[in-house]
Simulated assay, not measured.
Amino acid sequence: MKKNSRRRLPALIAALVVLLAIAGICVYFIPLVKVKNIEVHGATNADTAQVAEATGISVGENMLRVDSAAAAKNVASVPWVEKVTVSRSWPSTITVDVTEHQPVGYVKDKGTPLAVNEHGQVFLSGAQPEGAVEFRNVKADDAAAIEAAAQAVVALQPQVREQLEYMSVKNAESIELHFREDRTVFWGSADRAREKAEATRVVLLRDGAEWNVSNPAIPTLKS
């Protein structure tokens, strides 16, 4: 009897494996676990409905067959979206976590504003985001100049940035900041941006309409 039991054991194990495989196939192809919700987190400027639709995932779809990588790639094309991850939140929710571009400036291309993020990248056409600084005298295709201008804005302390009205950006080596009350600060390039930001903060506390902080160690007042 013991020998017969030992002989049956491999057969039982094999049968169990086959049954589990069949069950797995059924669960994968038959939507027993369905998508009921698509939740979007982190979207402030992006339209959450548009983000959810861009995933390409439908309510009622089999949770196991959701292609999260493809969904994330689709969402990445939505305006304002810089980074995105798509994941399953069991038992029935798809979670879309969005990181948006942070606008710091904009340039105009034939009258059309182009929003620029903190990395100096144009990410949206036709938008002039609230709080973004206009970069003037710069061509929309001058990537180096736009990036340098964005670095300058990012380096400024919040209380200084609030006073900034616009920037004149002739090229990446010639950046000039225009503040309220007709005060200007010439930066030159974006090199040593943190030091120049501190020098700018200091000179704005002093008298004088035009300052040069291209050498932040020795700010000079233009005559």
Rank of each mutant, 00 (worst) to 15 (best):
F135E: 00
K34D: 09
K73P: 03
E147T: 10
Q157A: 09
R7Y: 15
E198L: 12
I38L: 06
A148W: 04
I22H: 09
E39T: 09
A132Y: 00
T44A: 15
K110H: 05
G188I: 06
K170C: 02
V107I: 05
G56C: 07
R6D: 09
A145Q: 01
C26L: 15
K3F: 14
F179K: 02
F179N: 03
L114T: 00
V202H: 13
A155F: 05
P79S: 04
A14Y: 05
V185Y: 08
A140S: 03
T44R: 13
S125C: 04
P216T: 04
K2L: 14
G120V: 02
K222W: 10
P158Y: 05
A76L: 13
S89E: 14
Q151V: 06
S77T: 09
V213P: 01
S223H: 09
L204E: 07
V116P: 01
D47F: 03
M1Q: 11
N37G: 09
A49T: 11
V202S: 15
C26F: 12
E173W: 05
A199T: 03
A127C: 00
A155W: 03
A197V: 08
R192T: 02
A46T: 02
E173G: 13
R6Q: 13
P31S: 05
E195P: 12
T112D: 00
E53K: 12
M167K: 04
P79L: 02
L32E: 02
S92A: 13
G60H: 05
A115F: 04
A11S: 14
E181D: 15
S87D: 14
P113E: 00
G126P: 05
S189M: 05
A150T: 00
K34N: 11
Q151S: 12
E181G: 04
L64T: 03
D191H: 04
V78E: 09
H101V: 08
Q121C: 04
E147H: 12
G131P: 01
V138H: 00
A21P: 06
P216A: 02
T85L: 12
V169C: 04
T93Q: 15
V153M: 02
K108H: 02
H101R: 00
